[in-house]
Nucleic acid binder design. Structure first.
Lengths: 117, 117
DNA sequence: CGGTATCCCCAGCGATACTG
DNA sequence: CAGTATCGCTGGGGATACCG
C-alpha cells in the first residue's frame, strides 16, 4: 500500500472497512447471523476459499468478526459479527439509502459522459 | 473486476465511492473547494499525475466531480465537487465519527491478536 | 469440513519521457 | 499547466492440489 492517508481523515477506516470483499462478508454476517465457513462461501458466491480465509483472518484481527473453533469430528468453525462490527450497521444502512436514491443518477451521468465525445 | 456484488446491496456504491484514491480526492475537493490539477496533486501528496487523472476522469464520468476547462495560455483546469458528490458529505462525516470512536479499538484488537499465537 | 500450499497471471501503479 | 504515452514490475487474486 502506498497510502492515500495523506490529506484524508477517513482513509484508515476506509482501508479497514471497505477493502475488497469485506463489505459482502460483514453484510452477510450481519444479515444472516452466525455462519460456518461453507455457508459464507456459498452466500457470497464468487469468492474463492483462499481469499475468504484471508479476509476473515483480517476481519478477525481487526476485531470486526469473531471466529469460534469447535474441535469436533468433523471440525466446525463459526463466524459471527462482533459488537464493534455491528456498530457499522447504521453506516451500511446510510450507504444503502444513498445507493437507493442516487445510483440511478450515477448511471445517467455515465450515459451522458459516454454519449458526447 | 470479479464483482463482490453477489450478496451485498451496497457493493455497487462501494465500488463507486470507495475505490482507490477516490476518498482523498472527494474529501479534498469538499474541504478546500474548487481546485486546479496541481493543487490537488500537491494536497494529496503521494499520488502520481497519471493516477490522479484516471481517478478524476472516473469521478467526472460518475457525476461526482465537475471538470471545467478554461482555454487560456497557459491552460487552466478546475475541478469541483458536484451536487451529487456533495450529497456524500454526511456519510463521510459519519465515517469520520466512527473512526474517532472506534479506530483505537481496532488497534487494540490487532495488538491482542498479534500477541497470542 | 475448513482450511493451507503452490503456481501463475494480469490489472494497476510507479517512473520516465514527451506534448499542446 | 495539464495532461498523454510507453515501459516495467509487483502483489493480490484465481485455479488447482493437497492435508488434519
Amino acid at each position: 500500500m502506498t497510502a492515500p492517508e495523506q490529506a484524508c481523515p477517513i482513509a484508515p477506516v476506509v482501508d479497514i472497512v471497505f477493502s475488497r470483499w469485506t463489505t459482502p462478508i460483514l453484510w452477510t454476517l450481519n444479515e444472516y447471523g452466525t455462519q460456518r465457513f461453507v455457508e459464507l462461501e456459498r452466500r457470497i458466491g464468487t469468492i474463492t476459499a483462499k481469499v475468504l480465509t484471508q479476509r476473515l483472518r483480517q476481519l478477525e484481527r481487526d476485531g470486526l468478526v469473531v471466529r469460534t473453533y469447535h474441535p469436533e469430528v468433523p471440525p466446525r468453525v463459526e463466524y459471527e459479527i462482533s459488537e464493534l462490527g455491528r456498530s457499522l450497521a447504521p453506516l451500511f444502512a446510510s450507504l444503502a439509502e444513498w445507493s437507493q436514491h442516487n445510483l440511478a443518477k450515477v448511471e445517467q451521468a455515465r450515459l451522458r459522459y459516454d454519449k458526447k465525445d
